[in-house]
Amino acid sequence: MSSFSHVPESPIYYGYNGSPFVSKLEAVLKLKNIPARRVDVPLTPPRVDILALGIPYRRVPVLAIGKDVYIDTSLISEALEKAYPSSPILATDVGLQKAVTKFYDHFLFNLGFDILPWNKTPKSLQEDRKKFIGRPDIDFDEVATRKELAHSKLASHLAILEEHFSDGRVWYFSTPSPTYTDAGIYAVLDWIRSFRATRPVFDSTVFPKTVAWFGRLDTLFAAKPPLGKVKGPDAAKEIFSSTFTADLSQIGFDEVEAKRLGLKKGAKVVISPEDSGRDVVTPGVLIALSKQEAVIETEQKGQHVIPSLRVHFPRLGYSIREVPNGENAKL
């Protein structure tokens, strides 16, 4: 039984240039040949086009498959694999792919944070990122002093990749074509590679097989047609007028997990990331829960009532809590 129905030919996602995780999603979309369209949102909040969906959420990308909205590239990629099964990228070693990609997402993104040329960024961006990571006391001048250490760590990561590719494999898991893991590692390293100071670290004489792997993906992605664009108001209108596409019976409601979390089906909850962006919570009614996914339905109240959407979150990396009676959760 398929877990999706009435899937749109061209899903809609929200993001901005320069985000490694938006780039990761775009790599996945291109590998799967999905002609998705992007709503461009600003580098810093408020991101009114996402808020227009009735979804307060701090990070990007966000992707809608009909009226089912997905958060975080890990869950987004799984949803795309099920909704658009042609050109599979998670067909083999699924658990291992998730684990390896999560490892690189975490360590390489944090490494990139230390390598970013913060001295060339506006103060407004620095202040926003302090809120984003929950570190109001961070000193970006001190971060700049760690750049050479970060370059050394980057070289260590590249050395591990070089060792991995030393057996002559073409793609990370010796598959006939690139996988989710290839897309994930490539996107975050390509973001780091875009910083001028790091380019000497990507030395083809030191890491020939890794640089060759990069080159193969560079060529592959350059040959793909560009993804489309759509304006925020048009995207919202299309999403609200569409149908729910995910079969929630395939997710179910795990009563054991609910008991562990102190939750019940139909409870009013808020969900937020556990690391960066946790200052913004997403409220809704809990309608599905498994060990890997939680789904809430938005409740729209007030002067301008808009249709409810279902918002899907991965369990790992996100916290869920019930809203006590009387607490203003803006449901």
Rank of each mutant, 00 (worst) to 15 (best):
residue 92 T to N: 13
residue 151 H to L: 15
residue 167 D to S: 08
residue 240 F to L: 10
residue 254 D to L: 10
residue 48 V to L: 14
residue 263 L to P: 03
residue 304 H to C: 09
residue 288 A to Y: 03
residue 175 T to G: 05
residue 298 T to F: 03
residue 314 P to R: 01
residue 286 L to G: 11
residue 268 K to Q: 14
residue 147 K to I: 11
residue 99 A to Q: 14
residue 65 I to Y: 02
residue 69 V to D: 00
residue 249 S to T: 15
residue 313 F to V: 03
residue 243 T to G: 03
residue 299 E to S: 01
residue 178 P to L: 04
residue 34 I to E: 03
residue 273 P to K: 10
residue 63 L to V: 06
residue 288 A to D: 05
residue 206 V to N: 08
residue 104 Y to E: 12
residue 259 K to D: 06
residue 225 P to S: 01
residue 190 D to N: 14
residue 255 E to I: 07
residue 311 V to W: 00
residue 124 S to E: 12
residue 323 V to N: 08
residue 51 L to Y: 00
residue 294 A to E: 02
residue 24 K to G: 03
residue 15 G to E: 03
residue 256 V to T: 05
residue 234 D to L: 11
residue 58 R to D: 03
residue 209 K to G: 01
residue 198 T to V: 12
residue 111 L to T: 14
residue 10 S to K: 11
residue 164 H to I: 07
residue 222 A to G: 02
residue 109 F to D: 11
residue 136 P to C: 04
residue 197 A to Q: 13
residue 192 I to W: 08
residue 49 D to R: 08
residue 26 E to Y: 01
residue 285 V to K: 15
residue 56 P to D: 00
residue 86 S to V: 12
residue 174 S to N: 14
residue 265 K to V: 06
residue 136 P to V: 03
residue 137 D to V: 11
residue 131 K to S: 10
residue 131 K to D: 09
residue 309 L to A: 09
residue 205 T to V: 14
residue 132 F to Q: 13
residue 297 E to A: 13
residue 316 L to D: 11
residue 263 L to C: 05
residue 195 F to Y: 15
residue 157 H to E: 01
residue 15 G to M: 05
residue 20 P to W: 08
residue 42 P to K: 12
residue 166 S to E: 09
residue 289 L to V: 10
residue 235 A to K: 12
residue 253 F to P: 08
residue 248 L to Y: 07
residue 134 G to I: 07
residue 246 A to W: 10
residue 98 K to W: 04
residue 187 A to C: 06
residue 113 F to H: 03
residue 38 R to Y: 08
residue 263 L to I: 06
residue 285 V to G: 08
residue 309 L to D: 08
residue 322 E to T: 14
residue 131 K to W: 11
residue 182 D to C: 06
residue 5 S to P: 00
residue 22 V to N: 06
residue 96 L to A: 13
residue 250 Q to K: 15
residue 224 K to M: 15
residue 20 P to R: 06
residue 207 F to V: 07
residue 291 K to N: 12
residue 233 P to N: 08
residue 60 V to Q: 09
residue 166 S to I: 05
residue 156 S to A: 13
residue 238 E to M: 11
residue 191 W to Y: 14
residue 22 V to W: 01
residue 11 P to I: 07
residue 19 S to M: 09
residue 223 A to L: 13
residue 234 D to R: 06
residue 72 D to I: 02
residue 184 G to S: 10
residue 5 S to W: 00
residue 318 Y to E: 01
residue 308 S to E: 09
residue 238 E to N: 07
residue 49 D to I: 09
residue 63 L to I: 07
residue 306 I to A: 14
residue 176 P to R: 11
residue 314 P to G: 03
residue 205 T to N: 15
residue 16 Y to D: 06
residue 266 G to N: 02
residue 56 P to C: 01
residue 3 S to M: 12
residue 130 K to F: 13
residue 316 L to K: 06
residue 105 D to E: 15
residue 84 Y to E: 01
residue 162 E to I: 04
residue 256 V to E: 10
residue 7 V to H: 04
residue 283 P to W: 05
residue 64 A to D: 02
residue 137 D to Q: 14
residue 90 L to K: 13
residue 274 E to F: 04
residue 288 A to C: 05
residue 228 G to M: 06
residue 184 G to L: 05
residue 153 K to H: 14
residue 320 I to L: 11
residue 97 Q to R: 13
residue 145 T to M: 08
residue 73 T to S: 03
residue 6 H to R: 12
residue 323 V to K: 09
residue 205 T to D: 15
residue 152 S to I: 07
residue 234 D to W: 02
residue 95 G to L: 10
residue 305 V to P: 04
